[in-house]
Design a protein around this nucleic acid. Sequence first.
DNA 1: CGGTTATTTGACGGGTATCAAACACCGTGG
DNA 2: CCACGGTGTTTGATACCCGTCAAATAACCG
Lengths: 228, 228
Amino acid sequence: MVQLSDAEERIVAATPLFRSLSAEDIGVLLHGCNLVTVTRSQMLFAKGDPAEVSYLVLQGRVKLVQHDESGSEAVLRIFGPGETFAEAAAFMGGRYPVSAFAIDQCRLLQLKTRTLKAEIQRRPDIALAMLASMAAHLKTLVNQIADLKLLTADQRVAWFILKRLQLSEDGQTIRFPYGRAVLASELGMSAETFSRALKRLSRFGVAITGDVVTILNPDKLARYARVN
Amino acid sequence: MVQLSDAEERIVAATPLFRSLSAEDIGVLLHGCNLVTVTRSQMLFAKGDPAEVSYLVLQGRVKLVQHDESGSEAVLRIFGPGETFAEAAAFMGGRYPVSAFAIDQCRLLQLKTRTLKAEIQRRPDIALAMLASMAAHLKTLVNQIADLKLLTADQRVAWFILKRLQLSEDGQTIRFPYGRAVLASELGMSAETFSRALKRLSRFGVAITGDVVTILNPDKLARYARVN
DNA sequence: CGGTTATTTGACGGGTATCAAACACCGTGG
DNA sequence: CCACGGTGTTTGATACCCGTCAAATAACCG
């Protein structure tokens, strides 16, 4: 059994995969899990590696990326504390279809697929939780595709800000959770375009100071990025 | 119980969701299902509708689309015979995150979520099959995002042709399964760009006559669209 | 404080969307 | 059989979004 802080245990219990389970059920699933610590820009797995484990983020951020032969990369998604990833690949027993890198210093829980599968056989509701978790992933990806196809770069940035604003404390400011270059790639644009997009959004009441973004007029911004 | 032709029963049995199940298990799941027939361009459900059923395609093609306020649409994916869709949304019991339209005349099986859920409780392996099916969907979407972010329009068209070529009989020709406009939207480009892309690909040994595409030199084309 | 990395800014070119018109395809009805 | 309207595709002209390259600036860190 791994050693987790109280805060970390709360994170685990709150994750979609485990939310519906009792503390002891979680204990069973975590039995024999590895706790791994990785440093900034370190690789967790490469595309094509045999997928034997999935991950739960406790601290830091992980980016899932796809590379092309020329070396440029596309960030598919970024996972933070409380989120799980690579469940699907691990579960299918195939190989990872993407690569994973730590953006920050990270603490991660490695979930053994074997244990997970075994538990599903015994406890069908774990399967339901897993289905729910994967359904959420699906929805995220579907929205991302729609955004890429329907919105301009500026609108995607605006949309990103608005989404974060909903989780914000004061409803007026957000802060960028990680570097702009990574953010740009996640939104499907170059770092330069992202920088310019931010500047252009000042027309709609967006002010940037360091890593803090102040949205003077959320409605105006929402009207510009009319989506969903 | 619905009335299916032999061919259709074979389609059902071969679908990822049901592949691992016995004929009688399938019978249980299909019990009380509706068989629906829709005509070209008819809507199956709209984004925001309560998601009560998922679908299995028997005949024809269905497109899942997202609209923006200006009326332009993005095709997220197209499903043909033997494929299932909307499982995730139906399963979560929420609302459909996208809209669905028939491209052709279609015959579809409506799967009741209630039945599916009940069976999962009794038979965990159905849950595994469902997880596998959703994992496959996830992988498709992930690849689509990577393609949109990393490839040019021409490369996406080339890549599409190559993928279809692998399923081709003779390994030299394919035919477009549906209209070019829909195809273009699926690949994330306008119909005009798609048309021009096809023309430009003649430089790499792609010849078009009507709906038939002849690939004179698959290797050359693959070298151009170097991906995966 | 120096050296490295991240971000911004500018200039430029190319890829794509958009608009418009010409054209091909197709089932219908005269 | 051919005319014909509707739909879908192609082609051309144009504009602009956005990526790339290069340089300047800022932020970071030991």
